[in-house]
Design a binder for these strands. Structure first.
Lengths: 206, 206
DNA sequence: TAATTAATGAACACAGTGTTCATTAATTAC
DNA sequence: GTAATTAATGAACACTGTGTTCATTAATTA
């Protein structure tokens, strides 16, 4: 067959399928989408679809994989930490870069984050983030006085879940808050904790 | 027909369907599940299924709705805040109660959180949490010196996303960390912020 | 220009859906 | 306890979508 083909026809067909597929996902529940829908939106025969993908789940898989791959490449957290010392400006820069990436790929993320029928996209995205993060930690090591092992596991989960939730909210609100402001807010939550950022006072005796 | 019927046969049939449905979800992708599968697991005729639910999506909907409803009732955050003052012991109690509820309803949450075919369960759960939270805020008001409006919106999102992520991780790890420890860790992150909890030092000049 | 390979579209068997209907069985109300 | 009511059964049906096949046409590459 033609895996990784450079034949113009193959490239054109795949591009049409993937692009129209995103369009459809923005309008319609993935569950309710048929191969016939996708094929006719892409102006190809239904049989041609099966020349490139096993089924609609395979197509979804490929599109997600590609989208997440380029997203993950955004993450170079070690550029923003110097030893155990966190430099505010760089953390903010880092988060800013993330939000910019999401805006630049709005169509993809909107389709994936909000289509009611797409299974576990946020979860999968998070897994990729975590994997990347752990890889980075292996490379650059950890700060000196370190928390206990289970806390070490928990924090990246908490942070990545929180970030993904935030990005979802940001999209839902038409991204009306500038990336820079989002980055600053995230920085505050990361360094002060949610409760203080919220305005609560915390009794200091634990 | 029979909505809200107390006829023994109806009660029995629905119970069988819902219970067996959860079993199946623990083993098999929701996408790949057929009405025939469900019916025969519940020892009823396929036609009987349609006497109670429109289709498998309707069944899923009903099961989720019921599960989330009882979960939401756990949340009485106002018991744990006194004015703008946060009392550590009570926050910890509150988070503890949440983790206990998840353990008690393990079968339901495991099926929902990890089945690859269930659309947006975490997202839906979060929406319910947020709604409840905003309702509470309306009732008890907010602390005195309050953050700006968009920060007010962002924090509950961040917290609830983070919590849901944590619970997922906890399940994935066979809930081997005791609820009490989880509650304490969550408290730390909430009050100190993830970075300090992690062991990073933060340059203080923002 | 010839050789290769992709796209087409019609046909096919198949699986699952959601509905119907006459029959049987269980439950409720009196 | 009996009669009236209502749920469950299972077979049948039309329908939609799936994934594959194959001979034919069209585009691309060497």
């Amino acid at each position: 067959m033609h895996p990784g083909s450079t034949d113009l026809r193959v490239v054109k067909t795949r591009l049409a399928i993937q692009s129209r597929f995103l369009d459809l996902l923005l309008k319609k529940n993935f569950n309710e989408l048929t191969v016939k829908d996708i094929a006719s939106a892409a102006n190809i025969g239904r049989g041609t679809f099966y020349l490139h993908y096993q089924d609609k789940y395979d197509l979804l898989e490929k599109v997600i994989e590609e989208g997440l791959e380029t997203t993950i490449d955004m993450f170079q957290p070690h550029e923003y930490l110097v030893g155990g010392q966190v430099i505010p400006e760089r953390i903010i820069q880092f988060v800013l870069k993330i939000f910019e990436h999401f805006r630049e790929n709005e169509r993809f993320f909107r389709a994936m984050l909000f289509n009611e029928g797409i299974p576990m996209f946020r979860h999968r995205m998070q897994q990729r983030f975590l994997k990347k993060f752990h890889h980075e930690v292996e490379l650059i090591g950890l700060p000196g006085q370190v928390a206990d092992p289970s806390t070490l596991e928990i924090l990246p989960i908490f942070i990545s879940s929180g970030m993904i939730g935030l990005v979802g909210w940001w999209f839902e609100n038409q991204m009306r808050i500038p990336e820079k402001d989002m980055a600053r807010k995230v920085f505050l939550v990361m360094t002060q904790g949610p409760l203080k950022t919220f305005g609560f006072r915390v009794e200091e005796n634990h």
